[in-house]
């Protein structure tokens, strides 16, 4: 009976943890997406200084969320985001608007993709 109770507790923890994680990763993804939008708007206005400031905010935000993301998401996905962010930062520093905007589009995709593997969808189950 003890093991049944423990199994039930573990089951509740797994389900609750999964729901909490899923909502959390959605929030992180949405936040990163909107921050990226801010960088794109600044770039379109040729405000490179403003774009750099916004990039610093993205770095700070990612630093805060790094532990949670690394504990649950594939480390490769996070590495890809960081790599692209570094490239984007350099493009902004060099004033390469077109390259920077294409990197922003790539990052948009990566941010959207973060919670995709964990969404309750038939395609993810199959």
């Amino acid at each position: 009976m003890k093991s049944v109770v423990m199994a039930a507790v573990i089951a509740v923890l797994i389900v609750a943890g999964s729901i909490w994680y899923e909502s959390g990763i959605h929030r992180v993804s949405d936040n990163l997406f909107s921050m990226n939008e801010g960088v794109k708007v600044a770039l379109e206005d040729n405000d490179f200084e403003g774009a750099r400031e916004k990039m610093d905010n993205i770095y700070l935000y990612l630093d805060k969320k790094r532990a949670a993301l690394s504990a649950t998401d594939n480390h490769e996905a996070i590495d890809k985001i960081e790599l692209s962010l570094n490239e984007l930062y350099e493009y902004i520093k060099g004033g390469h608007k077109t390259d920077a905007l294409s990197k922003c589009s790539m990052l948009e995709f990566l941010y959207k993709h973060l919670p995709k593997d964990y969404e309750m969808k038939l395609e993810n189950i199959l």
Binding site: A7, I10, I14, A71, T72, N74
Partner: peptide, 19 residues
């Protein structure tokens, strides 16, 4: 590269199912 939780959660799920 693989988060340790992606090993722990399936193991615990299997145990829950088995029990």
């Amino acid at each position: 590269d693989i988060p340790i939780l992606s090993g722990i959660v399936p193991v615990l799920t299997l145990i829950v199912a088995e029990v």
